[in-house]
């Protein structure tokens, strides 16, 4: 199974990491969409299992969660989804979760079952580093990497603590706020990435609000190891619900253009 380490060391530029809600708008279409994203050059995937109360997400991803839940997605179907993706291509997958779904499934079982399906890490959006011990041991024994978030208001001491507990990559949140596409890239990105890069050798991937190729270029130029694009892509699904074909073509061409703009590392 391909690891984050392999991807980051092989790539000569920042990794392209699209985010999808599994099952948005339904299982089969969602699978086609994610495969198209892989074909368009995704290096790593971030996938979410929908939750009824996603407090870290803005309207776009909230609506995707609702579409997916309405189509009948649950944790078992998400496992099946990931197995099918891994049959298609061996690409690293990070899961983005709200804690209650993991907790109800049973933390250890959740990590073991998803590792076996082909997942590399599970980021729990509403579990901070202060309670990370609830998931670190189960993650390690299941053979998963850890991914934690750092935000622009995280202090230096916490950044160091977070880095010390992270084996996969640090998910650097570009702004103060929830997910959602934005016209402008947050002016906090450069400082945040620069600071993290000075503190740790753990790879740093940046997400939240990255909506255009030029945003990705700026993030990559700031020294990030990966660029995570969520709401912008999910929005392309929402805007084209009447044509499955159009969803695929729009997402492919968007990701291709981003991929082609990300500069080689100097």
């Amino acid at each position: 199974m391909k690891t984050y380490k392999q991807v980051f060391s092989e790539l000569k530029r920042a990794a392209l990491i699209p985010f999808f809600v599994i099952g948005d708008p339904d299982f089969d279409t969602s699978l086609k969409i994610v495969k198209a994203a892989i074909d368009a050059g995704a290096d790593i995937l971030e996938l979410g299992i929908p939750f009824s109360d996603p407090i870290a997400d803005g309207p776009t991803i909230q609506k995707a969660d609702i579409r997916s839940l309405k189509s009948g997605i649950n944790v078992q179907k998400a496992l099946k989804f990931i197995r099918k993706l891994k049959d298609y291509k061996d690409i690293p997958i990070g899961l983005l979760m709200y804690y209650n779904l993991v907790y109800q499934y049973g933390i250890e079982n959740f990590f073991t079952d998803f590792q076996q399906a082909g997942v590399n890490s599970v980021l729990v959006a509403d579990l901070s580093i202060d309670d990370a011990d609830e998931i670190i041991a189960p993650a390690a024994s299941a053979g998963l990497d850890t991914v934690f978030m750092v935000t622009p208001n995280t202090n230096t001491q916490r950044m160091k603590l977070i880095a010390s507990k992270t084996t996969g990559f640090i998910y650097a949140v570009s702004l103060l706020g929830v997910t959602g596409s934005r016209e402008k890239l947050s002016d906090m990105v450069e400082t945040l990435v620069g600071k993290l890069k000075g503190l740790t050798r753990v790879p740093v991937c940046v997400g939240f609000g990255i909506s255009r190729a030029e945003h990705a270029v700026m993030v990559a130029s700031a020294g990030a190891d990966g660029v995570i694009i969520g709401s912008k892509i999910v929005q392309l699904i929402e805007e084209n619900l009447d044509s499955r074909e159009k969803i695929l073509s729009e997402i492919s061409s968007f990701l291709t253009s981003v991929k082609n703009s990300i500069p080689l590392r100097s």
Binding site: D131, V150, N153, T154
Partner: peptide, 11 residues
């Protein structure tokens, strides 16, 4: 209890 919130709210 506890404080199960995203990192951004911790400060």
């Amino acid at each position: 209890g506890g404080f199960y919130v995203p990192e951004v709210l911790i400060p």
